[in-house]
Amino acid sequence: MANEGLRPVPPGQVTAPEDLELVRRCVAGDRQAQRALFARERDHVHWTLFRILGHSQHLEDLIQDAFLEVFRSLSTFRGESLLSTWVERCTVRVAYGYFRRKALVPRLEPVHEVVSGAPSAEQRVMHREAARRLYALLDRLEPSQRIAYTLHQLDNKPLKEVATLMQASLVTTKVRVFRARRSVEKRAENDPLLSEFVVGTSQVSRKR
């Protein structure tokens, strides 16, 4: 991997100098630096994919893909954002690619081992089932809507950050979140368990 692809950092760069150094070494093919980046960002990548996909059998494959995407694209990193944000953006792109590749037929995947923080066993079961049903609904959404929804509604990221991660405008992101939420809420209306969590929350989200 040659390092000539690393562009000069503009004066307004926000990346910490040590991160830039790490990137430079990664681009130069320094395996130790690459492992360091992997170790630093792995939970972050896992977390992002987990929120978007729920518990998927493809999660570990996508983690690999995300890091491949990171290492392959690192030479284009210009230091205009935090390195972690840039990695997350790569991760979101990989998730998006996964949904597109997965095709248009929604396939339901069970959400295993999802444990709620609620104290009682009964509530845990309820949350687990609600999560399973929610991800089943999300499987029916367009990938862009699903990703916007999960990042904003489930991961509580501000819309602006979601827009940055998805490389879309703020308005587009708002529309995606709105449509996804409307779709989820509409479908959840007839589901007493799910509706308790997702119906009638528009006001809350609009404030942000």
Partner: peptide, 29 residues
């Protein structure tokens, strides 16, 4: 708590074991 949607997803993040991470890392490289 700001979002009811998020309430459903007070799902605890299921971390991978070190052994699995090791495997993933090997595979990535």
């Amino acid at each position: 708590s700001e979002s009811s949607h998020a309430r459903i997803l007070e799902l605890e993040f299921e971390p991978l074991s070190e052994a699995r991470w090791h495997k993933i890392e090997q595979r990535v490289f």
